[in-house]
């Protein structure tokens, strides 16, 4: 990934400021009101592009002027201390924040050039295109089969039972769960182990063939072995899907992502190739965080 020439003048202005900023402040916890994201927050093959997004809960502002691109078939990790707004930001990407009372999103979020917050956009269609996996595995209280078949059924994607069976099997295989559950497809999804449940949720999400998958700390409720399997899975999936993953674990970000975004108190501090973020971060706050001075 490299910095790219931007298309319009506003962005040009932004990027010119960005490179001139040197943070030399002694206290990394100080964050000035006039912050600027450092690093390569723009890419040239952007699947989603987010510009100057603010999110409010009632009167409280949770996200401050965030701009970042998510490249096609890229895995981007979002890290940062608790309460820094990374989950809120993620939920803004498929408009899950609509379900929260008093939540308001300002700014411009586009996918393939289409404004996600335009009144003309259909949320149902959007969410079918941008899937989501949650922090805690949340299989529906139905059988494994019905969990995976849920998406195709509501969207009317399968014409016949055979089609549906095929879709379920393909999704379960892609979520590398098929071998474990093929003999008990009609048992309750809630009876699986935590890691299996989370893979079931991933299978459920990919059954409708979304273009982007958002993952909100998908491994935080899992043990290390299950986590490793999910991480492997993310890597496989990244060949076909664009993935944005919020994680609490820096190691996980380092293992699965190509780029990493660091959030701090609702502000996007730095976006850079993962390797760079973890070896020589541009911003002092990022450095403090990855060296464990807070978080």
């Amino acid at each position: 990934m490299q910095k790219t020439a931007t298309l319009d003048a506003d962005d040009m202005a932004d990027s010119s400021i960005k490179s001139s900023v040197k943070v030399t402040n002694a206290n990394p916890l100080d964050i000035t009101d006039e912050h600027v994201t450092v690093g390569s927050y723009e890419v040239n093959n952007a699947k989603m592009s987010i510009k100057n997004v603010n999110v409010y809960y009632g009167d409280k502002q949770a996200i401050f002027d965030v701009s970042v691109d998510i490249g096609k078939n890229e895995v981007i990790a979002m890290i940062g201390p608790s309460g820094c707004g990374k989950s809120t930001f993620l939920r803004a990407l498929n408009r899950m924040n609509d379900t929260v009372d008093g939540c308001r999103v300002e700014g411009d979020i586009r996918m393939d050039g289409q404004d996600l917050y335009s009144p003309k956009l259909d949320v149902v269609e959007l969410r079918a295109r941008v899937g989501m996996v949650f922090q805690k595995p949340n299989p529906f209280p139905k059988s494994i089969y019905d969990n995976v078949a849920y998406g195709p059924k509501i969207h009317g994607l399968a014409d016949t039972r055979v089609d549906l069976d095929e879709m379920v099997e393909r999704s379960l295989r892609r979520a590398s769960l098929w071998d474990e559950v093929k003999d008990r497809l009609y048992q309750a999804g809630t009876g699986l182990s935590g890691g299996q449940q989370q893979r079931l949720c991933i299978a459920r999400a990919i059954a409708v063939s979304p273009e982007v998958i958002l993952m909100d700390e998908p491994c935080s409720a899992l043990d290390p072995i299950a986590t490793a399997r999910i991480e492997e899975l993310i890597e496989e999936l990244s060949q076909n899907f664009t993935i944005a993953i919020v994680t609490h674990s820096m190691q996980q970000a380092a293992r699965v992502s190509q780029r990493t975004a660091y959030f701090h108190l609702g502000k996007l501090i730095e976006v850079n190739p993962t390797e760079q973020v973890f070896t020589m971060p541009e911003h002092a706050l990022t450095e403090s965080y990855i060296t464990g001075r807070f978080g």
Partner: peptide, 21 residues
């Protein structure tokens, strides 16, 4: 709420979420 979120995030409408989940 996680159940509802799971369904809504799949692109189900509100009534589909209510009726099916």
């Amino acid at each position: 709420q996680a159940m509802r979120d799971g369904s809504l995030a799949m692109g189900a409408t509100h009534s589909e979420t209510v009726r099916r989940v």
